[in-house]
Amino acid sequence: MSMLEVSSLMVFYENALAINNVDLRCQKGEITGVFGANSAGKSTLMYTISGIILDIEKKERMRGGERVTVLGSIYYEGADIIFMETSDRAKKGIILCPERRRIFPESSVLENLKIGGILATRAQAKKTLDYVFTMFSPLKGLKKREGGFLSGGEQQMLAIGRALMAQPKLLLLDEPLLGLSPMMEEILVRAIEDINETTGITILISEQYARPILPIIHHGYVLENGVSVLEGTSQELMDNPDVKSAYFGI
């Protein structure tokens, strides 16, 4: 059974269509990838699955700004959650690790992780904290450093660690490789694979730079202008001539 099932999802910003009739499934325990260029709708998709879109809609409505409309359905563990609030979705295990990381800048590394662990029990938090520090060992020496003073790679490690502290069942990673060096990319890709293998957390990952991610996903989708134009397993996507020319330059 698929853990997450998005069906005929449409998201409008005013009259502009950001997500157009997208169907997407995440199988339990697998890594699912969503690829696409800038403005293909990846972040909007992530915001819609995590519920942030409802907050955007509310704030825009209050200040008389853009009208945001969401249509369709998102089934998570069998129930439609399309109108559920972000914090309630988080309690059910959908945790978004957002684009550009959004670390709490005035809190130390340890406090960022503690804030991540608000939903966890004490025992869970301790166990996850150990796991995070073993996987991302550079963070260990920076416990007291304020989040705002970390490098991009360190911030990304912290953001993933913080999301793990919230005990996700479905982890949404929005552009985790954005602006990182190839070396850091490799570390993170390996970490993401490790999270999936050792903890069994289902992962949905969006990335415009598909090359390092493609080999580790089980199933993937390609978005173009809000439309899902292609889907398949990791191998199918890598063998597809369009994907090859777009992402591998062959």
Partner: peptide, 19 residues
């Protein structure tokens, strides 16, 4: 901690389960 989280970045805190 959830008060401080909301004070620093409301949406990031919401993603971690803070109402």
């Amino acid at each position: 901690l959830s008060l401080r989280a909301i004070a620093q970045d409301e949406r990031a805190a919401m993603m971690l389960g803070v109402n």
